[in-house]
Amino acid sequence: MTFENILIEKNNQLATITINRPKKLNALNKATIEELHEGFKTLDADADVKVILITGSGEKAFVAGADISEFSNFSVEEGGKLAAKGQEILFDFVENLNTPVIALVNGFALGGGLELAMACHFRIATDNARMGLPETSLGVIPGYGGTQRLPQLIGKGKAMELIMTAGMISAEEAKSLGLVNYVVSQEELLPLATKIAGKIMNNSSVAISKAIKAVNDSFRNVNGFETEVTEFGNCFGTEDFKEGTTAFLEKRKAEFPGK
C-alpha cells in the first residue's frame, strides 16, 4: 500500500513508522490517522515484525497536535463521531496491538500527538521534547483518550492540572512523572530504542502479547488478575513456552518460534 503521510521502514524484526508531514509539524489529520491504522494493522500481521517504533519526521515535532482546520466547524454529532472513530481505529487500536509499540517523542507532542504517544506501550523522549494537552485553550477537551491515559500514567492531580491549564512540560519533567521512560539527545534516540527493542525481541512474542492484554485490562472495568491467570494458563499451550522452558533446562538461548 502506498502512503502519502507516513513512511514505513523494516530492518530485520524492527519496523519504524514515521509520520511525514513536516510542514504541518506532523499534525494528525483524518487521512494520516487512517494511514497509521493501515500501517499498524499490516505490521502487526507480519510475523517477522517483533517491535514497532513510531516517530515524527524532522527534529521539531513528534506530532504537534490534530489538524484543527478539519473540524473547526463540526457539529456536536460530528465531533462525537470524530473522537469515536479516532479512538477505534488508531488510539485504542495501538494500545491493544499484539506487537509492542514504542513512541520516539522527538520534539513537540501536543494534543493528539501526546495522546498517540500515550497509546503506545511506552515512550522515549529527546531532551528538546515538550508535551501537553492544550485542548481546553480551544474550548474543547482531549478526545483521543487523553483524559483517561494521562491520569493512569502520571496520577489524577497532575493530569487535572495539565489539562485545566493547557500547559506544556519538558522532557525531564515528563520523565520524573513517569510519562516517558528515558530522555536522550536526538542522536541517542534511535540507538537507545533499537537497543531496547533488541532486548524485547529476545523474548517470546506470544508471551509479550498476552502480557500487554493483562496489563491493559487492569486499567479497564475488567479484573486484570483474572486476565493474568487466564493468559498465564494459555501460555502453557504455546510452542514458545515449550521452547523457553526446554532451553532454560538445557542451559541454552531460546529460539522462540512465535507460536
Rank of each mutant, 00 (worst) to 15 (best):
L43K: 01
F219P: 00
K60D: 05
S170K: 11
R220F: 12
A83Q: 12
A159S: 15
T165W: 03
K259M: 06
A125N: 03
D48C: 05
G65D: 08
A207T: 02
A214N: 08
A166E: 08
E161G: 03
R220G: 07
G58A: 02
K50A: 13
K195Q: 14
G155T: 04
Q13W: 15
K195R: 12
L150W: 11
L150I: 05
T42N: 10
N5F: 04
L53M: 10
G198Q: 04
Q148L: 11
N98I: 06
I141D: 07
N202S: 13
L162Q: 13
N26R: 00
V101F: 06
S137N: 07
A214L: 03
K50V: 06
P151S: 02
I169W: 10
G167P: 03
A247V: 11
K156A: 05
R123D: 05
I212G: 03
K41S: 15
A31K: 13
T55S: 05
F3H: 02
F248E: 06
N29S: 04
I102F: 09
L189V: 06
N221Q: 12
G58H: 01
M131T: 05
E95Y: 12
F256C: 02
V49A: 04
R130A: 09
R252Y: 09
A103G: 08
E70D: 09
N5S: 13
G146C: 08
T246G: 08
L153Y: 08
I33G: 01
K259E: 12
T16F: 03
I17N: 00
K30H: 14
M118A: 08
A211Y: 12
T55P: 00
K41L: 14
A211R: 07
E188I: 10
K253N: 12
L192W: 10
V222F: 11
Q152A: 10
K195V: 09
E38H: 14
L7R: 00
V76K: 13
L104S: 07
I54D: 00
A47C: 02
L14Q: 12
E255P: 09
T18W: 01
N11I: 06
N202H: 11
S209A: 14
N98L: 06
G155Q: 05
L28W: 03
M168L: 12
F248K: 12
N234E: 11
K199I: 10
A166G: 15
G65E: 07
I54H: 00
A125R: 05
K210F: 04
N73L: 12
R220Q: 15
A47H: 10
N106K: 02
F40M: 13
K24E: 15
E187Q: 14
M164R: 13
N223M: 10
T147H: 05
L153T: 15
Q13S: 15
F256T: 04
I163T: 08
F40C: 07
E115Y: 08
A207H: 05
R21M: 01
A117L: 07
L249F: 15
N5A: 03
K41E: 15
I19Y: 01
V222A: 11
M1D: 12
K23L: 15
T238M: 08
A117I: 06
F248T: 11
